[in-house]
């Protein structure tokens, strides 16, 4: 190309590309605004005939990946299945349950992004979260505890209020924020998932791992040299989460939850997953 032609092409191409970028940004902002508007979860799952549940893959008892099937197994998964069946009955629309593994750090984002419809993933109901997403009634009663080595001499979270102690937590959990209230001097180490957290505890990166007692019981069954010290110091029952302002979906799910608690399915699942956990009074978890 001659110089003048090249110059002309360069200028035009620059303008075109710049225009594309500007228009792209404008379109993006417009879509962002439109997406901020309401999308009804119940209408979506009824239309598609499936509910995509976010579940854990690294948490014993609640959601642990079965490497044979590629699907997580645990209390959360069974609850989600039972709820899907019950919601299908209530709405008269047959729906299947699908499962997507989520990490603690990612599940809120996935809900907001509608990658998943709902989340049954050991999620504590908190006022902060309720501002952003919707919760059903509680489906499991839990509270925060610490897991320590049996011979560590640590008897409760209060013993750890010193800068020589490090408490391991997982990014995005309630434990990450609550621990600082009970042991403000202790250092915090936030990791991406529980499997890494437990490994980090075992390799001495911290002296305790803190999260909900129910999750810690799972680790204590597997690692007999560790135990839960000092009971729970917070009370934070789990709820099933949906995106913000999903009243119809919440209503259906709460109704389904009440039904499976009444007809005994819920208690069967509690017995299936928690009756063999040492040190846990599983009967207290049953629906009355």
């Amino acid at each position: 190309m001659e110089k003048a032609k090249k110059r002309q092409f360069g200028i035009i191409a620059t303008i075109v590309l710049a225009a594309v970028i500007v228009l792209g940004l404008m379109w993006a902002t417009a879509t962002a605004n439109r997406n901020a508007e309401h999308q009804d979860t119940l209408a979506r799952v009824e239309k598609l005939g499936r509910i995509v549940w976010g579940v854990k893959a690294d948490t014993r008892l609640f959601g642990l990946m079965d490497t044979k099937t590629g699907i997580s197994q645990g209390f959360d998964i069974d609850i989600a299945r039972a709820l899907t069946v019950q919601i299908s009955k209530q709405t008269g629309v047959p729906m299947s349950a699908e499962f997507v593994p989520v990490s603690t750090a990612s599940k809120m984002q996935l809900l907001k992004n509608t990658n998943i419809d709902g989340s049954v993933s050991t999620m504590t109901i908190t006022p902060e979260r309720e501002k952003i997403i919707d919760f059903t009634n509680q489906y499991f009663d839990a509270g925060q505890s610490i897991l320590v080595k049996k011979d560590s001499g640590i008897n409760s979270i209060k013993d750890m209020n010193s800068s020589k102690y490090t408490v391991i937590v997982v990014v995005g959990t309630t434990a990450a924020t609550e621990t600082a209230k009970f042991a403000p001097k202790a250092k915090l180490l936030a990791v991406q998932d529980y499997a890494t957290g437990m490994q980090a505890l075992k390799s001495g990166q911290g002296q305790a791992m803190s999260t909900d007692n129910a999750i810690l019981y799972g680790f204590a069954t597997e690692n007999p040299e560790y135990h839960i010290a000092g009971g729970t110091f917070t009370h934070g029952p789990y709820g099933i989460a949906f995106d913000n302002n999903q009243k119809p979906m919440i209503k259906e799910t709460n109704a389904a939850l009440a039904t499976i608690k009444q007809n005994g399915i819920y208690n069967q699942l509690i017995k299936k997953w928690f009756s063999h956990v040492p040190g846990l009074d599983w009967r207290s978890l049953e629906a009355k």
Binding site: A57, D58, M65, T67, P101, A195, N223
Partner: peptide, 22 residues
């Protein structure tokens, strides 16, 4: 980091079954 089920993630899942596997 975004839970893609590739080899390293699956490794983590396997040692989540039993920590001596790490």
């Amino acid at each position: 980091g975004i839970v893609l089920s590739e080899m390293t993630y699956r490794g983590q899942i396997v040692y989540a079954q039993n920590s001596t596997y790490i």
